[in-house]
């Protein structure tokens, strides 16, 4: 109750917006929950100590002669400055190490699911491998089955990034030449947001992703859908867009599985239409945003590695976005 109350007071300002979409205050993962408890224990304890220090200072300044005399000796310093902090810090150290050790007790599920996330300038390549070894790429979106610990392998393709989905867990860095493994256990279904936490130059501010925690059946359905090739274009406009996509050379950087587009430099677009955002969390995913991104991405997300394609006519842009949005 106390916790909720303080929480409310603290983040009242934050509740105005779409609060909780990317916040350590709203834990939806096992590690984030442990840390949340730790945070409140420390904040309340630290708050009491802080008030105590201020009160003692006030007494030292304003108190009566006797109480001031009692405060003005080495024994007081030994007690308040050495003995008390030693006890508190010892307890806190042990508590902190025990919480750290708790990470060991959640071995990842044994169904063979493997998720690898690679940080790239400035987006996230996400690779799923199922129990049979089938593998597919997606980007900027991580789907997790609720209630199951899943190991996520974190790597980097260029500079140091840091994978931070505060609602689920603390951050873990992605360092060239190293593989770090983060175990995520989503405790509630829902969509949350995450962001790169290690400054990676240029568009670091625009390197976001979504985490979608789903019940097991939904997750399995999503896996089946994503593992398959792209759906064929459903309309004439989309057909024209598909042809344009190939003839304009988009396939040099992007892959659309089941077509001739097999580039690996940029995000895999096989199921781009089913994702929540464009440009690593920059824009909501709809046809208008897609058009805007193709033409104007250097303004929307400066320095990103995709050139701005100002060569297309209005009609061509309609076709392209119809095609891409259709790739559900």
């Amino acid at each position: 109750m106390m916790r909720r109350l303080i929480l409310l007071l603290l983040i009242l300002p934050a509740l105005g917006g779409c609060a909780g979409s990317q916040s350590a205050f709203m834990p939806r993962g096992a590690e984030a929950e442990r840390i949340d408890t730790l945070f409140w224990v420390m904040t309340i304890g630290g708050g009491i100590i802080f008030v105590g220090v201020i009160a003692i200072t006030a007494v030292a300044m304003l108190g009566g002669a006797r109480v001031r005399r009692a405060l003005s000796s080495e024994p007081f310093i030994n007690g308040a400055g050495i003995a008390f902090p030693s006890v508190v810090l010892t307890v806190l150290l042990v508590y902190g190490l025990l919480i750290l050790g708790a990470g060991a007790r959640t071995p990842p599920a044994g169904d063979g699911l493997r998720i690898a996330v690679s940080g790239e300038l400035w987006w996230w390549r996400v690779t799923y491998t199922d129990a049979e070894g089938n593998t597919f790429d997606t980007a900027n979106e991580l789907h997790l089955p609720v209630g199951e610990p899943v190991a996520v392998e974190l790597t980097s393709a260029d500079v140091i990034h840091s994978f931070w989905a505060p609602n689920l867990a603390g951050k873990l860095d992605m360092i060239p030449g190293r593989t770090n493994t983060l175990t995520l256990t989503a405790t509630q279904p829902g969509v949350t947001r995450g962001q790169c936490a290690e400054y990676c130059g240029g568009a670091h501010a625009f390197m976001s992703f979504h985490v979608v925690a789903q019940p097991r059946e939904e997750f399995d359905a999503w896996m089946r859908q994503e593992a398959g090739p792209a759906v064929p274009p459903a309309s004439e406009a989309a057909e024209r867009g598909a042809a344009l996509f190939l003839s304009a050379g988009c396939g040099a950087c992007h892959a659309v599985r089941g077509t001739e587009a097999t580039g690996t430099i940029g995000p895999d677009l096989t199921h781009i239409g089913a994702r929540r955002s464009i440009g690593a969390g920059m824009l909501p995913n709809d046809a208008a945003a897609m058009r805007q991104w193709i033409v104007d991405n250097q303004h929307i997300k400066p320095e990103n590695k995709m050139p701005a394609y100002e060569i297309f006519t209005e009609a061509e842009l309609d076709d392209l976005s119809a095609y891409l949005e259709g790739l559900k």
């Binding site: 030693s86 810090l89 042990v94 050790g101 060991a104 770090n180 493994t181 983060l182």
Partner: peptide
């Protein structure tokens, strides 16, 4: 002595080489 005690304490509470994440 206190600092050394703190530093040694971890060996009793945590596995020596695990990443624990």
């Amino acid at each position: 002595l206190l600092a050394m005690l703190y530093a040694g304490l971890g060996a009793l509470l945590l596995p020596a080489c695990a990443q624990l994440r």
